[in-house]
Design a protein around this nucleic acid. Sequence first.
DNA 1: CTAGGGTTAG
Length: 538
Amino acid sequence: MAHAHKVFDQIPDPNVALWNAMFRGYAKNEWHREVILLFCRMKSLDVMPNCYTFPVVIKSCGKINALVEGEEINCELIKGGFRANPYVGTTLIEMYAGGGFIGAAHKVFLEMSERNVFAWTSMINAYILCRDMVSARRLFDLATERDVVLWNTVISGYIELGNMVSAQELFDEMPNRDVMSWNTMLNGYARNGNIKACERLFEEMRERNIFSWNALIGGYAHNGCFFELLGSFKRMLVEGDVLPNDATLVNVLSACARLGALELGEWVHVYAESIGNKGNVYVGNALIDMYAKCGIMENSLNVFSSMDVKDLITWNSIIYGLAMHGRGVEALNLFSQMKNAGEKPDGITFIGVLCACTHLGLVEDGLSYFQSMVDEYQIVPQIEHYGCVVDLLARAGLLDRAVNFVKEMPMEADAVIWAALLGACKIYKNIELAEVALEQLVVLEPKNPANYVMLSNVYGDLGRWKDVARLKVAMRDTGFEKVPGCSLIELNGTVVEFYSLDERHPETEEIYGALTGLTKLLRSSRYVTALMELGIGA
DNA sequence: CTAGGGTTAG
């Protein structure tokens, strides 16, 4: 644009078309303020705008919410007789709707001399924007012309309100569905938690594009179905008619992170670069997180330093990754580098920063970071932040301060906070507070037996076996069984899950045979773990 | 020279 502007400045008497070209250029680069300023300059030079001028300028007004300027332009185009132009009317409706002025938008719509399908669509979309599906639907039924975009728009409106029944009804009534109609429905079911319907629809489709696959894969991601996600990614690669894009890869990498599928993650890393995603910020961020969650912090750091373009999420991912791994010093260093690089931290950044302080035992530093988050960055602390501070104090053994902090919080403590306190009670063997914490947890999470187990472990540590037994009964009385925590391991390209004393694997005997052998070897070299002392290891 | 629709990360 700088070059374009230079050339433009050398033209002695630019005509409207040339001015319009400048507006379009700035608008395309999202420099909306410039568009409006330039438009004012054109008027001051007495060049008359034409029908091509207004839509671009109005759109820029809408984009930056410059409704005062927009209003002036509206007056001007009424005087110039441009309100009859269908392009002008449509963009005006969008501008008002974007600013939340549904009445003004509707007024423009009513005053339009001829309403084509674009005008109907933008007016209906205006109602959808303010979540008024009843009016949107009424207009849709009145519309003189309905094309596939309009149908899809109304279906999306229902989906946004979570009304899949009406969305499906309309979809069934549609005369001509295109791929986008199908994809809209796929996303609707995926986002509204009906993954089975999403799968069913996906199978029914005869034509699929990248968005169809991403809708299915994104649906799995949303609903925590990570094995299915990886399955459909592999299927996508085998069928081979659609190439994954950055959105696909991000979802796949986040599934790898959740499942600890490091080998697949590494493969995706190489593959992503081979299909031209080197330097993609989304993919880079997902890689940082995947490597961190899989425990290979060096790879995270390598990806991080190789990224020429970084954004807020890049910094947050690396800071949190380092904090998780106990590398708090580096995490805090990167936090100050982040500020030097001109990136503004948000609430998530401070989760990582506070976590880093907790693992370093830097209580006072953590508290001052918490304070600076409020004072310097005007971030309103969420319950997660209060939870971090409670954890910070509690893990440092400052249980009284932690309790006082909970009392002074502006919101009610949630289960995470009480669980943090209970966890610290186990470390510091504080039975009184542990009992208070469980009392709260039983109310907040009556169905979670893990809380009983935590208190039971505190009793166990102190040798209070009668209380352990009493709690076991209380836990059984709730009727909810503790789901055993499981681990995941990647073997020959697939992820297998297992828990302690698991016997589900077909080669169980060989596995436990090997384990017994290893334990004997360790014993013979006088290596004794805490578990072995309790007689559990072998 | 102009207007409307879908996915992704912490």
